[in-house]
Amino acid sequence: MRSIDGAVLDLKRLDLLATGDSVIHRLDARAKVLTTLVFIVTVVSFNRYEFTALFPFFIYPVVTASLGNLPGGYIVRKIIMVIPFAFVVGMLNPIFDRELFVRIGPFAITGGWISCASIILRTVLTVGAAFILVGVTGFLSVCEALERLGTPRTFTVQLLFLYRYIFVLTEEGARASRARELRSCGRKGLGLASFGPLIGHLLIRTWLRAERIHMAMLARGFTGEFHSRQVSGFGWRELFYVAGWSAVFVVLRMENGAQWMGRLVTGVLS
């Protein structure tokens, strides 16, 4: 299980990356959200035995992360943490799909192994794209983009509230949880009997806090409408960004870039 403090710190770190200033950061968030969507849809649209054709797609996360000045090691570490889960899911494929796919020397590789590898690769690409989107855009701008792409205001506003108070409440939760752990010997005391009241207390405090927040809003003239300043616009740069990457994805989807390059090289060598 994740330690609470660690998770909060991690969240803060990813969020802070978005305060950077780079070519990518300066783009309108909508362009980045749309491009990420196109990327993910293209990647998952391959059939389950596609493995090599996925590799050229690394160009997108790598280029975006580099242009956005994201710390590569950090992103890679975050992705690696997810791989075990992908492996558990993918592991079932070799068990159920034992048909021979390819034989390389003495090794017989079944379709199951190929599709398992494909699942892991898909995970790396899609998860990486999501982290990078947040890193170069920031959650708030993603929300804003969602709203300007048609998401109802009620939804995005409470999404913003959620995000704002994650930091406050996880810290509060961490304090309560630490107190409980310190006073319970080993596993004793960590059961439901103490969990219920602990969470209940946290819930009541949360509820009262929500009331105070609403009060603070009323005190400043809140009438149910949120005003926001619109900072960026969707210009030619954005259009070019979305269209350019989409074209790259479509080409890589139709032509197996790895295959193509590999043939070129092996052809030259032989």
């Binding site: 913003l160 509230f161 704002r164 108070y165 406050v168 806090r209 009060m215 603070a216």
Partner: peptide, 11 residues
């Protein structure tokens, strides 16, 4: 307010 977190709710 006593707790500033209650008062700062915007992004």
């Amino acid at each position: 307010f006593q707790d500033a977190d209650d008062q700062l709710f915007m992004p």
